[in-house]
Amino acid sequence: MSAIQPSPALPVGGPAPSAAVTAAWVRSLRPGVILASLVVLFFVLAAIAPALLAPRDPLAIDLAASLRAPSAGHVLGTDQSGRDVYTRIVHGARQSLLIGVGATALAMAVAIALGFLSGLGGRLVDGLVSRFVEVLFSFPVLMLSLLFVTVFGPSATTEIVAVGISSAPGYARMIRGQVLSVRGSGYVEAARALGHSYPRVIRRHVFPNAMRPLVVVVTLGVGQSIVWAAGLAFLGLGVAPPAPEWGAMLDAGRNYVTHAWWLEIFPGLAIVLFALSVTTIGRYLQQRLEGGPAR
């Protein structure tokens, strides 16, 4: 997992690139973006209706067909118990996407609460919340996740909570920054001068403007969360086998890597491809949002 918190990956705010540069950048991204969208679509479809893409049973064993290399019958090979790797990757998408989306949603909810409290709450509240975020931030993601898994036992819910909580501080900082900058901008003061109530100003002006850059961050966060959750599974702290899940498949494939490379390479590729695709789309959105009409 790249251990990096998603937030710093993209510089939110700051001067936008000139329109010409952006346009060129976007043009150069196009084929990549299309490809990335196809990958994401594939996995979303896999998560919703896996049987459409892979009609076999991901749990069914066939001891006579164990550790088969990729072939026409098993395009991505089979594992030790003769289960079809392609089928398991497709059926694993639901679990992995659920964890990614769930963790990001949780992180966002926590971060929005903290960020807005901090950004709007005045000096004392800001100080307290900032300290709290600082403390959370001083726990590396994996450390916090280890603690959670040890307490609650390994499960998808635990993974969502662990990864979600540990990535919240990064988002919270960013939201606070956005809130502060939006609050200090002229049009909020203007709205206040026009006699709009404080809650209304927050709802109509501060919230949407502070949240806009986050669309991108959320996209990236989903990819990162999946990578993190798979890392937990890799350490043996993920969902219980034999449920197909990408990280758990990687963990199981590790022992066979010198004999059956397909068990390690393909689930890893699924994670990388998916994370890469959402990142590509995220960056593309970023260009559009910052350089386009949204501004």
Binding site: S2, A3, I4, Q5, V141, M143, G170
Partner: peptide, 12 residues
């Protein structure tokens, strides 16, 4: 920021 992440990564 990455230092904490590097320590996490170091575990793996």
């Amino acid at each position: 920021w990455a230092l904490g992440a590097l320590f996490s990564g170091a575990v793996i």
